[in-house]
Simulated assay, not measured.
Amino acid sequence: MNIGKNILHFRKEKGLTQEQLANILDVSTAAISKWETNIAYPDITMLPKIATVFNISIDRLLNYNRYKVSIENIINEVKEHIKKNDYSSAISLLKLSLERYPNNDALTLELGKTLMLYANFHKDRKKLLQEAFNIFLKLLESNDHEIVTWANNYLCTISIALKTFEKAKYYLKKLRLPKGINPKINDISIKSLTNDPNLIKTIKIYIEEAFIDYSYYISWLINHFIQNKEYNMVIDEGEKYIQIIKSLNNELFNEHLSTVSESIALSYAYLNDNDKALTYLKQAETYANNKKLALAMLHALESKERNIYQKLNKNTFIKLLDNLKNKINS
């Protein structure tokens, strides 16, 4: 038994300092320090009070490692159900486990994620997404920064899926990608989940649709920022979008990449950074790699709303227009 290590873990999980915990328990800070370093142990009569402060059972306080292994085993079992496309069993297991381990952030997060996945195959998609949304909303109260980050991530995703764009905008501003997330989706990462060709196809379609929804939302958001002259927001959100979508290496998104690049160029032009404006205009022209996209970009650049570009290097700008015209006429 390592009660000192357990007290240290739960104190940090609760977001308390040694001094704050000492005040609550009516002991000295030195006593807390000795407990956490196993120099001394709390009196047995203190255990109920300590467990109450951490909102856990005495059994969990004394056997944290065993508890941790139990949670990991549950999550592994859930993942096995998901691999078999058995979402109902996965959700039932998580809900039963949360009755045994209430307020466990890891299990709660897993339940929200599983509901999101199941929503893509369920007839009542909106209801399941709303249930997942409410779960992630509660997780914003967690003391675990990574859990909160994931919750914001999924709240933004669900808001986009439900087309509640004002909510999506709110959570997008809070969104910080957790360490380890790689937006690049490839066959290897998908096949690590399943060997079923039909399921692989379904996953790919879902991923593609999710990024298409994200692309339309970003386009809407950027137009909103431009109308409100929030040019730095256009640049921040646009560059983040381009970084994510470029990694997909899918020409399906060239239209969005071209449009977003041009919006960033426009923002830099309004901010009087002409060099960066030209850089992003060239990037937009590169993504406009067929007649339809080139024509759309040419019309945009020749509109009255783009008169700001007249202050850019004239020769470079004319050459860019000529490139677009050549694509249209080819």
Rank of each mutant, 00 (worst) to 15 (best):
N2R: 04
N2M: 08
I7N: 00
F10N: 04
R11V: 14
K14M: 15
T17E: 03
Q18T: 12
L21F: 03
A22E: 04
N23P: 09
I24V: 13
V27N: 03
V27G: 10
S28P: 08
A31K: 02
A31V: 11
A31T: 14
W35P: 06
E36K: 00
T37F: 05
D43M: 10
K49T: 13
I50S: 04
S57N: 01
R60K: 12
N63W: 06
R66H: 14
S70I: 04
S70E: 15
I74W: 02
E77I: 07
H81A: 10
K84S: 15
S92A: 12
S92W: 02
K95Y: 09
E99K: 14
P102I: 06
A106G: 07
L109R: 06
G112S: 08
L115W: 01
L117E: 09
L128M: 10
L129F: 02
L129Q: 07
Q130V: 15
A132I: 02
L137I: 00
S142Y: 05
N143S: 12
E146W: 03
I147W: 04
T149R: 13
W150L: 12
N153K: 13
I160M: 03
A161K: 04
A161L: 10
F165R: 00
K167V: 08
L172W: 02
K174M: 15
K184I: 14
I185F: 03
N186V: 09
S189K: 09
T194D: 07
N195R: 06
P197M: 07
L199R: 08
I200G: 06
K204P: 07
I205E: 05
E208M: 15
E209Q: 15
A210F: 10
D213I: 00
D213A: 13
Y217H: 11
Y217C: 14
S219W: 00
W220G: 14
L221V: 02
L221T: 05
N223E: 10
H224L: 15
K229G: 10
K229A: 14
V234T: 09
I235L: 08
E237I: 15
E239K: 15
Q243Y: 12
I244D: 04
I245A: 07
K246T: 11
L257Y: 04
Y268G: 14
D273Q: 05
A277G: 07
Y280N: 06
L281D: 00
L281I: 02
K282N: 15
Q283Y: 00
A284T: 06
A296F: 03
A296L: 07
A296G: 07
L301I: 03
S303G: 10
K304W: 01
I308V: 14
Q310P: 06
K314R: 07
